[in-house]
Each structure stands twice: as structure tokens, then as C-alpha cells.
């Protein structure tokens, strides 16, 4: 929330093309795979979903739905024998720079809900100390949250590799490095310690200069409910508030509630997960 776009209500600032591939490969053929997908963004002020589709490479049944957070979900049912499942998401979204301010999104739950912590966002001593340090300077809540984001960005090192397991915020912060999920959960936890409701967001980001590259994970950041402003996005990985480079897909109390894919399978063995995300400004690049 450092800059407000002059033209935000007039014309879209950006047309983003998103490709998001998820491939599960199994060491043994599976009898059945069931997955809950949160891969589809909704439209709201500053984010207009023009086209969005999910393709599965096998004979699968997809049932659309909506969860209690208002996220668009799809249940995926596939029968075996199955040695891999590949999901391909392609979409086109018009975005505006709203300086991180969220408006017009499906909000079935009030902000107070997001004041509670969860096992993945449970505070520990170091995170409490971080919040105390940031709050110690006083100042308006909005400034404190900005300072919190900058501090996390400074103290944690970004690792682009996707980890196989998601860690609780305390473990990520103690480690001092991690992916976007780690940054987002640390930000969510610490913002709650400042007394502000905060939630986890999964989505996508256009990285100018890296448009042709496949990234190993979808992006994630936090939204904090700031008095007098409402929900504002804070991306501690990039140390900025989401603008027209961002596509907001799903929210939740933590990673688990907003994860792009939660799955179970019947058939034993192990699995290898490959994720590739590419976000571009025109179709040919994407």
C-alpha cells in the first residue's frame, strides 16, 4: 500500500497469462486418486478473470464447488490404474494496480475469523519478539505492517526450490530461509501478533525479466486487515504490496486451507510432485 494507481478504476493495467502445471508421478500404479483443487481465481475489483481452464491428462471427473472461505474449488476423481496425473491450468486475467487493497472479493467470513492461529501459523518466542520489536516503534498499524514485511524480507532468504513438506511459521523463521509459502506464513503469524487479522493467499506473480521461465512453485503472500483500510496484501518475499503483477487465487487461515492441491490416493508407493508456473504479459510469451 505505498502507491495508488491513478487509473485504477478506468482501465486495466495488465493482461496476464498464467500457465500452472502440476504433475504427480507414482512409483506404483494407483487404484484411485482424489484431489481437492483450489486453482481457480475469482473476479473482484482489480482482477477480472477472462478465461480460465483446468485440463487433466486422464479420464477424470471434475466437480466444481465453493468452500467456506469463498474459494472456488474443484474435486478431481480419477480411477486407476494410474502412474501419473497431470493438471494443466491456463488462464487470462486483467489486473489493475490497487496498491494491495482488496475489494469486492467473495468474503463470506468476517475479518475476526482470521485473528486465530493454527498449527502452521502458531507463534513462538522468536516470532513474538519480532512482533514486539516492530510494534515497539509505535505508529499507525499500516506503518507497522509495512515495517513487519520489510523486516521479514530482510531477515529471511528466498529459496526458489519447492520443499516437499510445508513447515510451521516458527520453523521457517528459525531457519531464516524458505519459499513464498514460508514467507507468507511468517507474515500471517506475526501480523496476528500485532493484533491484526491476517490470512494466507495463494496465487501467481509476474516477474518482469523472468517471463519465459518456469518457476517451481505457485506464489503466496499474506493479507492483513488494517483498521480504516480493510484487507491489504503484503508480499514479504518481494517486500511489496501486490499490484497488477499479481493474480489472487485462494485464501485461508494458513497454507493448508488455501493449498492449490490437497490429495489422497489409493495404491501405496511414493509420489514425486513437479510444479511449473509461468506468468506472462502476452499469450506467445506465456
Amino acid at each position: 500500500m505505498t502507491r495508488r494507481s491513478e487509473s485504477s478504476s478506468v482501465s486495466p493495467d495488465m493482461r496476464l497469462f498464467v500457465h500452472h502445471r502440476t504433475v504427480y508421478r507414482f512409483s506404483e500404479p494407483q487404484d484411485r486418486v482424489i484431489q481437492m483443487l483450489r486453482l481457480t481465481p475469482g473476479s473482484h475489483v482489480g482482477q477480472n478473470v477472462i478465461d480460465w481452464r483446468i485440463d487433466v491428462d486422464c479420464n477424470a471427473r471434475l466437480r466444481p464447488g465453493r468452500d467456506g472461505y469463498g474459494n472456488e474449488t474443484a474435486m478431481l476423481y480419477v480411477d486407476g490404474p494410474l502412474s501419473s496425473v497431470s493438471l494443466a491450468v491456463t488462464g487470462e486475467v486483467l489486473t489493475e494496480d490497487r496498491a494491495g487493497m482488496v475489494a469486492g472479493a467473495a468474503e463470506p467470513l468476517p475479518p475476526e475469523l482470521f485473528a486465530r492461529s493454527t498449527p502452521l501459523t502458531a507463534p513462538d518466542e522468536a516470532l513474538r519478539a519480532l512482533a514486539t520489536e516492530v510494534a515497539g516503534d509505535g505508529g499507525p498499524p499500516l506503518d507497522q505492517v509495512h515495517q513487519l514485511m520489510a523486516t521479514i524480507h530482510r531477515r529471511m532468504r528466498f529459496l526458489p526450490q519447492k520443499r516437499s513438506e510445508v513447515r510451521p511459521a516458527g520453523a521457517s523463521f528459525a531457519d531464516g530461509q524458505g519459499g513464498a509459502t514460508d514467507f507468507a506464513q511468517v507474515m500471517v503469524c506475526a501480523a496476528r501478533l500485532l493484533g491484526l487479522p491476517a490470512r494466507y493467499v495463494s496465487g501467481h506473480i509476474l516477474r518482469p525479466g523472468h517471463q519465459h521461465e518456469w518457476h517451481e512453485a505457485a506464489h503466496a503472500w499474506a493479507e492483513v486487515h488494517v483498521p480504516d483500510y480493510g484487507w491489504i496484501g503484503f508480499d514479504a518475499t518481494a517486500n511489496r504490496c501486490p499490484d497488477d503483477h499479481y493474480v489472487r487465487v485462494a485464501i485461508g487461515l494458513d497454507y493448508r486451507d488455501a493449498a492449490p492441491v490437497s490429495g489422497t490416493r489409493t495404491g501405496g508407493g511414493s509420489e514425486v510432485l513437479d510444479v511449473g508456473v509461468r506468468v506472462g504479459m502476452d499469450q506467445s510469451q506465456a
Binding site: G68, P108, L113, A115, R116
Partner: peptide, 28 residues
Amino acid sequence: ARRIIADGVVPPELILGNPQFRPMLAGA
């Protein structure tokens, strides 16, 4: 609809902050 919270009968945090309130089931 959570009228009972809007009408101030039960403090919101007792429901919304309670782990027994399952947000993903809201709207069921």
C-alpha cells in the same frame, strides 16, 4: 448468516476464534 454475532448476543471471538468453528464448512 451469523445473526447472533451481529446482534451482539455472543462475543464474536468466542465463535470465530474457536477452533470448534470450522470456517471451511461455512455456508453448509
